[in-house]
């Protein structure tokens, strides 16, 4: 066996391991979110002297945020399909659309946070708001890192082309992105919905 083929064999195995490892990483991340959800559930009623969820949450804004994130998952899916068909240009296009949607989501979330802090409902006001900002903020931070990942991957696709490692990374980034979508659905139904009902 030549050095090139043996390297290739090894790479295949390594990428396999990375994909499996990434699933486990996602699981650890899921544990983090689970505990942040639990913290929120414990503290949700503890608004002390500050505003309650009824005073703060705006379902229509949240609905738009949810829409943006759901559609971004769809567009990432389109990028994955393009990847399967080896359409490099398409991959980049769909990734770019996903990135825009992700950034739009982040912008809306920052707007929401900013508005709350301006209204005197920052995280230092009560246990409820601390838990809210930490849970939603951690998700937002993940979306930010995901967006950074998309930027890096657009660069890699353009520079390196659709090589095996690039494909594997794209696949893992996709997992990450869809995972964030699921977490957001959790946030929507465990934080925002009960908060206004």
């Amino acid at each position: 066996m030549s050095a090139a083929t043996i390297l290739e064999e090894e790479q295949k195995h390594a990428l396999h391991s990375r994909e499996f490892g990434f699933w486990i990483y996602l699981m650890t991340d899921a544990v983090i979110f689970a505990l942040l959800f639990a913290s929120y559930a414990v503290l949700a009623e503890n608004s002390a002297a500050g505003p309650t969820s009824n005073d703060l949450f705006d379902l229509s804004r949240t609905a738009i945020e949810t829409g943006l994130l759901l559609v971004s998952s769809l567009t990432f899916g389109m990028a994955s399909i393009a990847l399967m068909h080896d359409q490099k240009g398409r991959v980049v296009q769909w990734l770019f659309v996903t990135l825009l949607l992700g950034l739009a989501f982040l912008a809306m979330e920052m707007g929401e946070f900013g508005g709350m802090i301006e209204k005197g409902a920052g995280p230092e006001v009560s246990g409820f708001l601390s838990a809210f900002f930490t849970l939603v903020g951690t998700h937002g931070l993940h979306v930010a890192f995901g967006s950074l990942g998309i930027v890096v991957m657009i660069g890699q696709v353009l520079v390196k082309g659709l090589t095996a490692p690039v494909r594997s990374r794209l696949m893992r980034l996709g997992l990450f992105w869809h995972f964030l979508d699921i977490v957001w659905i959790g946030i929507f139904s465990a934080v925002y919905l009960p908060g206004v009902l």
Binding site: N46, E124, G127, T134
Partner: peptide, 13 residues
Amino acid sequence: LGFHFFTNGDGGN
């Protein structure tokens, strides 16, 4: 940052 997860009062636990 002055959060209130575990403080006495202000809704900490």
